[in-house]
Amino acid sequence: MNAPVAPARMNQIGAGQAGSGNALELRGITKMFGALAAISDVTLSVRPGERRAVLGSNGAGKTTLFNCITGDFLPTAGLIRFFGEDVTVFPPHERIRRGLRRTYQISSLFAGLSVIDNVYLACVGVSRNRFSLIRPRPDDALMHAANMLVDAVHLTAEKNRLVGELAYGQQRQLEIALALSGAPRFVLFDEPAAGLSPTERTDLIHILTALPNHIGYIIIEHDMDVALRVVESVTMMHNGRIFKEGRPEDIEDDPEVQELYLGGGHG
């Protein structure tokens, strides 16, 4: 599993000793759908608090990579460590309880519930109250946390509206709130800016840059302008493989990247 990705690995930014100190560490992750290798031999490590963009054209395997990290799909081969712990075969909820979070490229919300109830559910999911049969009281701690999150994503005015009635951009913001419940340590954002208006994008950038320093994330983002303002490192994917890694400015100026990605109808 060495040869194909060697150049990528050499570019790792500040990667610690193998197996130690990384928030997320992927080794040789491969995911096959039948005969199709959606991702092949992806090796990647991200430090705690590091913020990274994953770029790549449609079908490059970015979402599949996220699905493997969260456990939505088990990888066909490879190893995943989350803060040093081997979580390769853990079910999704076990990874979430350890501080991993994600948003979905296509909003995955509870349309029949109010905004605050959606966020409350997210807060319950990473608490010990999951099986509680006692209704929350107005001074409930989890409800308080949910209220703070709703404020943090600028949805205070929509708190009691049904999610199904929200505008698209507001639903995207709510996706982010759900991913920040409890004590997140590392978040995967799957194209959070897609379909947002310029103002909403600015809002999103504010939300991301306002996250506490210790929370690292990977953001999948086609829009270089957004991606490069909120990350310190970039991983390029192409045909399911890591194609290049580096600092944003290096990636942006890289002729190969320009050729393959920026020139290819994106950005």
């Binding site: 079910p91 979430i96 994600r102 995955s108 029949g112 559910l121 999911g125 990473v126 999951r130 759900l178």
Partner: peptide, 15 residues
């Protein structure tokens, strides 16, 4: 929530 969207519930930490 499990009835309406089990996958999302798992991604929120629910078994």
């Amino acid at each position: 929530g499990v009835r309406d969207n089990p996958r999302r519930m798992a991604a929120l930490g629910f078994n």
